[in-house]
Write a protein that binds this DNA or RNA. Structure first.
Lengths: 246, 246
DNA sequence: CGGCATCCGTGACGATACTG
DNA sequence: CAGTATCGTCACGGATGCCG
């Protein structure tokens, strides 16, 4: 009798690795196809179902719905109905879900060398460059919001928010985080990047994707790129001054 | 109707996310089921096919073979034939594959809170506790090899090896590297943990799994555990002294 | 119109059996 | 020991339909 008889039908029995191991437990939650990419999208802020479907080309509608349900059940995300004017609902990450930022950052750093060529079949979204750039802006002396302009679009990041997995370096909540309903209790705190322009930016950068990736890989500093004319930094606050290398 | 001749070894076009994004590129390589757990196993040093199959309960033989082939092709691992005495071959990580340590570490840290209960179906291996412990031993002032004794078995880690996603710091190889891998003469790259006892240990710790996990979660320091009698540290070198909190 | 649910073809997965 | 072969099952991807 090699196999234990399962009660057959339970909740859609999710496939587990059944290992008493922290990594395996993580992969039980976020190891399914598309899940981490949905997290990447939601790290940019609340998103509607249709937005997610548009920014995740290739995912089928039922898989997206199923993943969102799994993520809700696993405590990674919540679904919130928007006030009457807009008869829609948005998904957003919980604190636990936002805690995946170091995982995404580590994956982005490891995968950066594989981004040498852009294949013709590759989709692109501007905010996908936020994660690599976060690393380059992680150690700034003057934290603040940076708005980034690429040919592919705009996004904004919060410099100095502490994206990597290092201990300590608690994020400073508050600042401009008014739009985010969060008490800022944990280390990662609030939304660290977002799509589109920022409500209030301390610095504005214009560059192209290639330079942006080089910054993320650490091959280049922003000050060097500005010196070469490959990047432009606008702003008069201390963060902008620091980024220009003045 | 002429049969379509498949190029044999390379037809199965791998399913890609087709996104110009570092994270998506990473997941193209390591996002498949079991891949990251195979990396976790190989981070402990070279392993034979049968060893991998034994320590990854639930993986089917063909999937394991397929993943190893993929990993070889993606430059994550290599296969090496052992000298005549042992008519076997082992798999080991390349430098690129070892670069996944920060990813595994971030996953382990995020998954640590999910390790509260051990389900009856969970398999356990001693060296699975190495990743959580690495984080607790990452910042020691005196680097060295720590041998850990649990009820579930023994393993060893290299304290101060830099497991987290810190910037750069890629290979500070050298030091005392040769003694770590179980057959010693593997490429010495930088195996940061391994199964079984260490050839030369600077400190020996005895504790149980629960305390080990609490250390990894940062809820407890090793010195505190020693003070409570929940851990024992043996050794007279500077590392052992530091770990005891003396 | 946004947010899914249903159906279907294909491929990936898991278990077992078999072979060099 | 180290895989390959086979097969049943399930998950995935694509298209369409329903419903508030």
């Amino acid at each position: 009798m090699p196999r234990q008889q399962q009660p057959a039908t339970r909740p859609p029995r999710r496939r587990s690795y059944d290992q008493f191991c922290a990594t395996a437990r993580s992969l039980d939650s976020v190891g399914d196809r598309w899940t981490l990419l949905i997290v990447r999208e939601l790290l940019a802020g609340p998103r509607r179902y249709t937005d997610l479907h548009a920014d995740l080309p290739g995912v089928s509608t039922d898989v997206l719905a199923s993943r969102l349900k799994d993520m809700e059940q696993n405590g990674l995300a919540t679904r919130r109905r928007l006030p009457p004017p807009a008869a829609a609902s948005v998904y957003e990450l919980t604190e636990r879900g936002r805690g995946l930022l170091p995982v995404l950052a580590a994956l982005a750093e490891w995968g950066a060398p594989a981004l040498v060529e852009r294949r013709p079949t590759d989709a692109v979204r501007a905010h996908w460059f936020a994660l690599p750039l976060l690393r380059a802006l992680d150690g700034v002396a003057h934290p603040g919001v940076v708005e980034v302009h690429l040919d592919e679009g705009e996004f904004h990041v919060r410099a100095g928010a502490g994206a990597s997995a290092g201990a300590g370096a608690a994020g400073r909540a508050g600042e401009d985080g008014a739009a985010v309903a969060d008490d800022g209790r944990s280390s990662v705190g609030a939304v660290v990047y977002g799509d589109g322009p920022a409500a209030h930016a301390d610095a504005r950068i214009t560059l192209d994707a290639e330079v942006c990736l080089a910054l993320g890989r650490g091959e280049l500093t922003l000050a060097e790129a500005v010196g070469d004319g490959r990047a432009e930094v606008v702003g008069d606050g201390p963060l902008a001054v620091e980024l220009r290398g003045e």
